[in-house]
Amino acid sequence: MARLPALVDDLMEISRFDAGAAALNLNDVDVGAAVAACLRSRGWSSDVTADLPSPDVRVPLDPRRLDVIVANLVGNALRHGAPPVAVQVRATGRAVAVEVSDQGPGLPADVLPHVFERCYKAELARTRSEGSGLGLAIARENALLHGGDLTVAPGPGAVFTLTLPRNRP
């Protein structure tokens, strides 16, 4: 029963995306500090290796939506991957990338094209597990809303990369 409010929130968020009503509340955000705050607020700082830029990398983005993306990726890596889980933030001239990787079994090649689909779960055994299968779909929609993208690649383990433009179009 405790999962019901989270499921309702996820469905409401998906509905906002479908209706074109999802909005950004943009702020000039230090991406490394935001990632560190996400890890700290969930008690993951000691479980995750973070390689954050210095000096800070600032990007116009919605900090709540960035938190949703990072929390989903790191949470999945901790639940379904294997240590070490790592988060790396790196900047190029035009974009900032946030990479979350783990050393678990990774994702089979036939699963990779489907991981961002709504209600998709990679393993039949997980169909009754905690979670709605909407987290990665919501994370990717949030990335696209920012003019960025969220991709996955085989590792070792799984490697998810959030790419955000440094300047709004």
Rank of each mutant, 00 (worst) to 15 (best):
A86N: 11
P63D: 01
L61Q: 03
V74R: 00
D51T: 02
A77W: 09
V48P: 02
R64Y: 01
S46D: 06
I69D: 04
G106T: 02
L66P: 05
G93E: 13
R65Q: 15
R64C: 00
A50K: 00
V68D: 02
W44S: 03
G104W: 11
I69V: 14
L61P: 03
I69M: 10
N76G: 14
I69Q: 07
D102W: 13
G75V: 11
V87C: 05
P83I: 09
V87A: 10
G75N: 02
G43N: 01
V115T: 04
E99N: 03
V70S: 05
D102E: 15
V100T: 14
R40S: 10
V85E: 13
T49M: 08
V96D: 08
V98Y: 10
L66I: 03
V68F: 02
L39Q: 03
R64I: 01
P83V: 13
D110I: 08
L39V: 00
A86Y: 02
V74F: 06
N76Q: 14
S101P: 02
V70K: 07
P60L: 11
R64E: 11
V111S: 12
D47C: 05
F116V: 05
V96S: 08
L73T: 10
H80T: 09
L107S: 08
V70G: 07
L112K: 01
V59P: 03
W44R: 01
A109E: 15
R58S: 07
G43H: 01
G93D: 14
S46V: 05
G93C: 02
A50C: 00
P83G: 14
P83T: 13
H114A: 11
Q103N: 13
R79A: 15
V85G: 12
D62M: 02
V87Y: 05
G75R: 04
L39K: 04
D110E: 15
V74P: 07
V57D: 09
V57N: 08
A77P: 09
A86T: 15
F116S: 00
V59A: 02
S45V: 02
S41H: 00
F116N: 05
A109C: 07
S101D: 10
R79N: 13
V89I: 09
